[in-house]
Amino acid sequence: MWQRVVRNLIGGPATEAGPKPDDEALAELAARLDGAARARLGRSLAIREVDAGSCNGCELEVNALSGPHYDLERFGLRFVASPRHADVLLVTGPVTRNMRHALLRAYAATPSPKWVVAAGDCAANCGVFAGAEGVVGRVADVIPVDLHIAGCPPSPRQLLAGLLALIETSGRSSAAGVASK
């Protein structure tokens, strides 16, 4: 074990450079969020992940973000256990009849200002589950959504590019907020 630790120390990190913030995501966010809300969030975001009916493919890729290759926390993004500690709800899956109530409660428990990211094609438009009898709709049919990240499932890099757009947007606007004072 210690040989491996030493080799890792000498060999440099496995962590790779992050992707650029997703342009489409930046445009979607700019249209959606007012400067005041952005300014209050700053450059660090606490994320509560909510699986509202996913096949668990999205969860696999969201989990990969915490691994050494992507190392989400270096960007100021971290997953938290409670919606009460969260700035962002990262919601996956089409919303099932049986998860609708829990999603609404998680949203209500998240303090304002809060952002909702709908990750994956199912969250955006129910994907292959559109019309299934246990599905009540897409995430935006249940709670307001600020950003969509496409993919089935979105790769860790796609997820990261979308989440970095959140940071980027909030960072720029808080700088602007300071300058205008």
């Binding site: 009916g53 493919g57 099932t96 829990a102 292959v128 589950f129 299934a132 009898e133 246990g134 599905v135």
Partner: peptide, 25 residues
């Protein structure tokens, strides 16, 4: 049962190629 979507019923009437996309999920 929280993520019950009704996949079995949703497969009905679909071609094998269409239903395979559900089986994959």
């Amino acid at each position: 049962g929280y993520v019950h979507k009704g996949i079995e019923r949703h497969m009905e009437g679909k071609t094998p190629a269409e239903a395979a996309r559900l089986a994959a999920r």
